[in-house]
Amino acid sequence: MVAFEPQSQPTRQQPARQNVRGWERLLSIGGGLLLAALGAGKHGQQGTRQLSAGSLLLLRGLSGHCSVKSAMDDPLGEIRYLRARVQRLQELVLMAEELADRTRATPMATAPTAPITPVTPAPMDIETSVADELASREQSR
């Protein structure tokens, strides 16, 4: 624990509570969709910025939680919550790395293969077959 954090308060492990409700949430969803659509239609940095801002607004509206608003209301609580999420992500990365190491260490069983013999196609007269096809088309008319 860091020295400036009070030890008496339990850490928040449950999902973040909603702090964006009603019209604010609807405006976040609507504004996010509008900005994302406008940004997706543009190229360059301006389009990327609009798409990013729209995506963040859309995420804020859909989840009902705003980390900035929560940090303004209860900064230490939000720091603890974010720290717990980062620790969980670190654990997941370590688990993924261990799994990757185990799969690399285990040799893959390969089925025995028979020797491959090259197959050569029979010689074909291309000009004759094309001429025969053209003749048959003219006869069908």
Results as ranks from 00 to 15, higher is better:
1 M>G: 15
2 V>T: 12
2 V>N: 14
5 E>Y: 11
6 P>H: 10
6 P>D: 12
8 S>W: 04
8 S>Y: 04
9 Q>Y: 00
11 T>I: 02
12 R>P: 12
12 R>A: 14
13 Q>K: 14
13 Q>Y: 12
14 Q>A: 14
17 R>D: 13
17 R>M: 08
19 N>Q: 06
19 N>V: 00
20 V>M: 05
20 V>W: 00
21 R>V: 10
22 G>D: 04
23 W>Y: 07
25 R>K: 15
28 S>E: 01
30 G>I: 04
30 G>N: 06
31 G>K: 00
34 L>G: 05
34 L>D: 03
35 L>T: 00
35 L>I: 03
36 A>S: 11
37 A>H: 04
37 A>L: 10
40 A>P: 00
41 G>Y: 04
41 G>D: 01
43 H>S: 13
45 Q>F: 10
47 G>S: 05
49 R>A: 02
50 Q>F: 11
50 Q>K: 06
51 L>M: 04
51 L>W: 07
54 G>Y: 04
55 S>M: 04
55 S>Q: 10
55 S>H: 06
59 L>K: 05
62 L>G: 09
63 S>P: 09
63 S>I: 02
63 S>V: 08
66 C>P: 03
66 C>W: 03
67 S>D: 06
68 V>F: 09
69 K>E: 08
69 K>G: 07
71 A>E: 06
71 A>L: 15
72 M>E: 15
72 M>G: 11
72 M>P: 12
73 D>W: 13
74 D>G: 03
74 D>E: 13
76 L>I: 11
77 G>I: 07
78 E>L: 05
78 E>Q: 13
83 R>C: 04
83 R>W: 12
83 R>M: 12
84 A>V: 06
84 A>C: 05
84 A>H: 14
84 A>N: 07
85 R>Q: 15
85 R>L: 13
87 Q>L: 14
88 R>V: 01
88 R>L: 06
89 L>D: 08
90 Q>G: 06
90 Q>I: 05
91 E>M: 07
92 L>I: 13
93 V>Q: 10
93 V>R: 09
93 V>L: 12
95 M>A: 14
95 M>N: 11
97 E>Q: 15
100 A>K: 15
102 R>L: 15
103 T>H: 15
103 T>F: 05
103 T>S: 08
105 A>D: 15
106 T>D: 11
106 T>S: 13
106 T>Q: 14
110 T>V: 11
110 T>F: 05
113 T>W: 03
114 A>M: 05
114 A>G: 05
116 I>A: 10
116 I>C: 10
116 I>M: 12
120 T>S: 03
120 T>E: 09
123 P>K: 06
125 D>R: 11
129 S>I: 15
130 V>G: 02
130 V>K: 11
132 D>N: 15
132 D>T: 12
133 E>D: 10
134 L>W: 02
137 R>A: 06
139 Q>A: 13
141 R>W: 03
